[in-house]
Computed example of a mutant assay.
Amino acid sequence: MPKSNKPSVLGMFAGATGSQQIFELEERIEQLQAEITRLRDERVNGELAEQERTRLNQTIEELREQLKASGIFKIHYSQVKPNPKQVRQTFTPDSIHSIAVSIREEGQQEPIILLPGNLIFDGERRWRAVGQYLQPEIQTLDAVMLPKELSDSELHALTLLTSLHREGLNELDLAEGLIQQAKLAFEIEQEEVVKAVRRVIARLNAKKLLPQLTELVSATRVEQSERIKEFELNDTERNVFLLLLRFQQNPASVDANVFPCLRLPEDLKTAIRGSGLGANHARSLQQLNPKNLGIEETEATKIRQNATLQVLQERLTVAQTRSLVTKIIAEHTPEKKPKPNHQISSLIRAVSATKVDNIQQEQLFDLLSALEAKAEEIQKKLRDTTN
């Protein structure tokens, strides 16, 4: 896929973060950068994700077959414990209900995989389906047990990989999963992770090194560790970037599309997790805030929630959602008056302060003629405006 040498929208403004004008445009710039990055990386990331999904599915199937040999057992659903390191937080009712129907009609096709202590490693949606929809007719699940205890970091990394490449994660779950993994693996907090990625992407973009970064996504772990030295990263930046690359995430795409979801208001996060609202839809709806609407937080939240409900019920596209948001903001924003012309204000003050006592008669006639001509022009403008 051909790469563009043009600077990104974000990179063009990277050196002006202190400007008030840029601060006000930040959210719009972020949206544009997300779209640019998505279009650039969509094909290559899709191919990589599919390859990794296939590889991981094969690995899990091989593991399941090995565990089957050691014995499948029945376990009551109430004895199974959800994984506290589960990356996937979005379990939509439709998804769980669909699995429940399948289990009721076809039976449980694959056992769930448990860790010591009956902690779920793979199969949480099957467990939820039995607990939520299949009582009392089905109360037990087929299960196999992994014999190995895992550290918090290992467990989280494996569940993140499983969720990423078997079914994919929405951007919100992915963002929170990556942040949690950085904290477990390196004790790096969320704000530090986000700032490190943003800082390096701006720097690499200025040096036109983003294509090399994209190439690293599909490289081996050894190649990634070696080639990333070219970017001259500090320890925190290096750890964060190697972590993202481990999970085959392009840091530029994470910066533009994934981490912004962390700043979404809670009502939109809830809509993503509970109702399947798309992240791009949510970022458009995020514009319905007190600042843009000129109202209090409580009222703005109510308007945003109603708009979210409309988007979900009418299944609006991202473009239609943006149009809806623009319309709502226009309805709640009073018409702005033109800013005062400072040149005219200065002229009025100068004319008012001018003394005519010591001015020659010829100049007085010239001044009067000029003022009369301008007065006639002003009166005509006022009549046109009134009409």
Rank of each mutant, 00 (worst) to 15 (best):
S4F: 06
V9C: 01
A14C: 01
G15H: 01
G15F: 00
F23C: 09
E26A: 15
A34K: 10
I36G: 02
R40H: 00
V44K: 12
N45G: 04
N57C: 05
Q58P: 00
E61I: 09
K68L: 02
F73R: 06
F73H: 05
K74Q: 12
Y77Q: 14
S78W: 04
N83F: 15
N83M: 14
P84T: 15
Q86F: 03
Q89M: 10
D94Q: 13
Q108S: 12
I113C: 14
L114V: 13
P116R: 08
L119K: 10
F121N: 03
D122G: 02
Y133D: 02
P136C: 12
P136H: 11
M145D: 02
L146Q: 06
S151I: 08
S153M: 05
A157D: 01
T159Y: 00
L160M: 06
G168H: 01
L169D: 02
I179M: 02
F186S: 05
A196G: 13
V197P: 00
R199Q: 14
R199F: 11
E226M: 14
L233I: 12
T236R: 11
F241Q: 03
L245G: 04
P251R: 04
N257L: 15
N257P: 03
L264S: 10
L264T: 15
A271R: 00
P290L: 02
L293R: 07
E297L: 04
T301R: 15
V311D: 06
Q313Y: 04
S323Y: 03
T326W: 00
T326S: 07
I329V: 12
E335T: 11
P340E: 14
Q343G: 05
A353L: 03
K355C: 07
K355E: 11
Q360K: 09
L367V: 09
Q379L: 15
T385G: 06
